[in-house]
């Protein structure tokens, strides 16, 4: 397997680097992410609180780049944009069906396992790229806004980065499974978006107790909780600031389960 990995990486690199939709969506994602990170502080600066004399005064002391919270802030916000790489994955997979290139590669001698490994490598590469981008932006903006007495950037919750990676992994493997099931880009995109925006909420609502919290996208979305800060504490809100092992475990299980379902589809369904 180890000697196959460079070959699979080269194959996927040829396929993706010349794909216009890949370039456009990647650019949109990067620009949006950086703009959101830069613009977030401006948005926060507009938050006002009502004073005793009923006038609105700006809320001071709330920094998006506060080193204590920067990693959680950034990864939490980035979670809202993960639909873009998910749509990209759907396009890349469904292309293989609409161009009949998957069947061509299988008859050329690529095994189903290798084909799936190639796609997992694309997902991994995307995740690594996104995490590096978030890390670099956080470092730059964090250093620019660092004030005397702030905790070191490296002590501010770096572990949110691998947590975001797991969030992305669960989300992207789920989108890949949808693409493999429906094969057509239009149908797969509609199903995915509907499920992500509405479907899972409805299912969560129907399910008893807190079972809905452990549905795949809910679990992935709750890996990084809403950050606590001076504003939330001023209005008496406190969110979980620890890692929820059960959520992590359910995400890991989902990743394996979805990969197994995809492999089963590849193995038993006509290509």
């Amino acid at each position: 397997m180890n000697e196959k990995l460079p070959v699979l990486i080269k194959i996927e690199w040829i396929k993706t680097r010349h794909y216009r939709a890949f370039k456009i969506l990647s650019l949109v994602y990067v620009v949006l992410l950086v703009l959101v990170f830069i613009g977030a502080q401006r948005f926060i600066n507009n938050i006002t609180i009502q004073s005793n004399d009923d006038s609105f005064t700006p809320f001071r002391g709330l920094s998006f780049y506060q080193t204590k919270y920067i990693w959680q802030n950034f990864t939490y916000i980035a979670g809202y944009l993960k639909i873009i790489p998910a749509l990209l994955i759907i396009l890349l997979i469904t292309n293989e069906f609409s161009f009949f290139t998957m069947r061509q590669q299988l008859i050329s001698g690529l095994s189903r396992k290798d084909f799936l490994t190639g796609k997992l490598l694309v997902i991994s590469a995307l995740i690594v790229g996104i995490v590096i981008l978030i890390a670099l932006t956080a470092l730059v903006l964090g250093l620019l806004h660092q004030q005397v007495g702030d905790v070191s950037l490296l002590n501010g919750g770096l572990w949110f980065l691998p947590l975001h990676a797991l969030e992305l992994l669960t989300y992207l493997i789920f989108s890949m499974m949808i693409a493999f099931i429906f094969r057509r880009s239009g149908i797969a995109t509609i199903v995915f978006v509907l499920y992500a925006l509405i479907g899972e909420r409805i299912v969560s609502f129907i399910l008893p107790g807190s079972i809905g919290d452990y549905l795949p996208l809910n679990a992935a979305g709750s890996l990084i909780p809403l950050p606590n800060n001076t504003l939330t504490s001023s209005i008496g809100l406190t969110f979980r600031s620890t890692v929820d092992i059960q959520t992590i475990l359910s995400c890991v299980i989902y990743c394996f389960l979805f990969t197994a379902i995809i492999y089963f589809l590849l193995r038993w369904r006509d290509a």
Binding site: H18, F99, F100, S111
Partner: peptide, 22 residues
């Protein structure tokens, strides 16, 4: 098995390529 197909050149039904690639 997959590796055996590397010894076979096959053209099935129609030419299947990535249209955006050279």
């Amino acid at each position: 098995e997959a590796t055996l197909y590397r010894r076979i050149g096959s053209l099935l039904e129609r030419p299947n390529f990535y249209p955006y690639l050279s």
